[in-house]
Measured scan of single mutants.
Amino acid sequence: ELSWTAEAEKMLGKVPFFVRKKVRKNTDNYAREIGEPVVTADVFRKAKEHLG
């Protein structure tokens, strides 16, 4: 699991709890794919757009 900024964690907190774990995993995987060592708010937004 990658490191997350406080802002990205806050955004994740707005995701319904029953899918939060999956969203975190998918976002981590997306960040790795694009070469990001940390999940930022920008990476979170891009993952959301990319993953739907």
Rank of each mutant, 00 (worst) to 15 (best):
M11C: 07
R45T: 09
K22R: 12
L12N: 01
G13T: 10
M11E: 09
G13D: 13
L51S: 09
K48T: 14
E1K: 12
V38R: 07
V38M: 10
F17Y: 12
K14H: 08
E49F: 10
K10Y: 13
D28A: 07
W4H: 01
T5C: 04
K14V: 06
T5I: 02
V38F: 07
N29I: 10
N26I: 15
D28Q: 07
F18L: 10
V38S: 05
P16E: 04
A41C: 07
R20M: 05
L2S: 05
I34P: 00
N26Q: 15
V39D: 01
V23P: 00
L2G: 04
V23H: 05
F44Y: 09
F44I: 04
G35M: 06
A8H: 01
K25E: 15
V19Y: 14
T40K: 02
V39H: 01
R20G: 02
K48W: 15
K46D: 08
W4N: 01
A41P: 07
E33S: 14
T40M: 01
F17H: 13
V43R: 01
H50P: 04
K21A: 15
R45A: 10
R45W: 09
H50T: 08
E1N: 10
V15C: 09
E33C: 15
E49R: 13
R45K: 11
N29Q: 13
Y30C: 03
E9C: 10
E7N: 05
T27M: 08
V15P: 02
R20T: 03
K10A: 14
K25H: 11
E1H: 11
W4V: 01
F44L: 06
M11Q: 06
G13Y: 10
N26D: 14
R20N: 03
G52Y: 09
E1R: 11
E36M: 08
A47V: 05
E9K: 12
V43S: 02
E49S: 10
S3H: 13
H50I: 11
W4Y: 01
P16R: 04
A31I: 01
H50M: 11
V43C: 04
A8R: 00
V19F: 14
L12E: 00
E1Y: 10
K22W: 15
N29E: 13
P16T: 03
G13N: 15
I34A: 08
R24Q: 07
E33A: 14
I34H: 14
K10V: 10
V43A: 03
E9Q: 09
F44H: 02
S3K: 15
A41E: 08
N29F: 08
E36G: 02
K25D: 13
G52F: 10
H50R: 11
F17D: 10
E9Y: 08
V43Q: 02
V15M: 11
L51A: 10
E9H: 06
V23G: 01
I34V: 09
K14L: 13
T5E: 05
Y30L: 04
K22V: 14
A47S: 06
A6G: 08
W4G: 00
K14C: 11
K22D: 11
T40W: 01
N29C: 10
L51Q: 09
S3T: 14
Y30K: 02
E7K: 07
L51D: 06
A31D: 01
F18R: 12
E36F: 07
L51K: 09
N29K: 11
D28P: 00
Y30M: 03
V15H: 07
R32A: 06
F17G: 11
V19P: 03
D42G: 05
A31M: 02
T27W: 04
K14P: 03
K22I: 15
V23S: 03
L12Y: 03
E1I: 10
F44A: 03
E9A: 07
V15S: 04
K25V: 13
R24C: 03
G52P: 08
M11H: 04
E49H: 11
I34L: 11
L12V: 03
A41T: 06
A41H: 04
P37R: 10
W4R: 00
D42V: 06
P37C: 10
A41W: 04
S3P: 15
P37I: 11
K48M: 15
V39L: 01
K14D: 13
V19H: 15
E33H: 10
G13C: 13
K14T: 08
P37K: 14
A31Y: 00
T40R: 02
I34K: 08
K48L: 15
Y30I: 03
T5Y: 02
T40H: 03
V39G: 00
L12M: 03
T5L: 03
E33I: 10
E36P: 01
V38T: 07
N26F: 15
L2I: 13
K21E: 15
F18T: 09
K10M: 13
V19G: 08
F17W: 14
E9D: 05
A8Q: 00
H50Y: 12
T5S: 08
A8F: 01
F18S: 11
Y30F: 12
G52R: 15
V23K: 02
A6W: 09
F18E: 14
E36K: 05
K25L: 14
P16N: 06
P16L: 05
E33P: 00
T40N: 07
V19A: 15
D42Y: 06
L2M: 11
K46E: 10
D42P: 05
K22A: 13
G35P: 02
V43N: 02
T27Y: 08
G52Q: 14
G52W: 10
K25A: 12
A47N: 03
K25C: 11
E49V: 11
K14F: 08
S3L: 14
T40D: 06
V15I: 11
A31Q: 00
E49D: 10
A8W: 00
G35W: 03
K14M: 11
A47Q: 03
T5N: 05
R20P: 01
K21V: 12
H50N: 09
F44N: 01
F18I: 09
V15G: 03
D28F: 02
K10Q: 13
E33F: 11
A47M: 07
E33V: 09
V19E: 15
L12Q: 01
I34T: 08
R45L: 14
L2F: 05
N29D: 13
A41V: 11
G52S: 13
V19C: 15
R24M: 05
P37D: 12
R24F: 03
G13R: 14
K14A: 08
V39Y: 00
V19L: 15
G35E: 05
E1C: 13
N29L: 12
A31F: 01
V23D: 02
E1G: 13
R24E: 03
I34N: 10
E49G: 08
V19I: 14
G35Y: 04
S3C: 12
V23N: 02
T5K: 02
G13H: 12
R45Q: 12
G13Q: 15
G13S: 15
T27E: 00
R24I: 04
E7D: 08
S3F: 14
S3M: 14
R32F: 06
G52M: 14
K25T: 12
E7Y: 04
V43P: 01
K21P: 12
A8K: 00
R20V: 04
K21H: 14
K21C: 14
F18D: 11
T40S: 06
E49N: 10
E7I: 05
M11N: 04
K10H: 09
A41I: 08
V19N: 13
T40C: 03
P37L: 13
L12G: 01
E7H: 05
E7R: 07
K10I: 12
K14N: 09
T40I: 01
F18V: 10
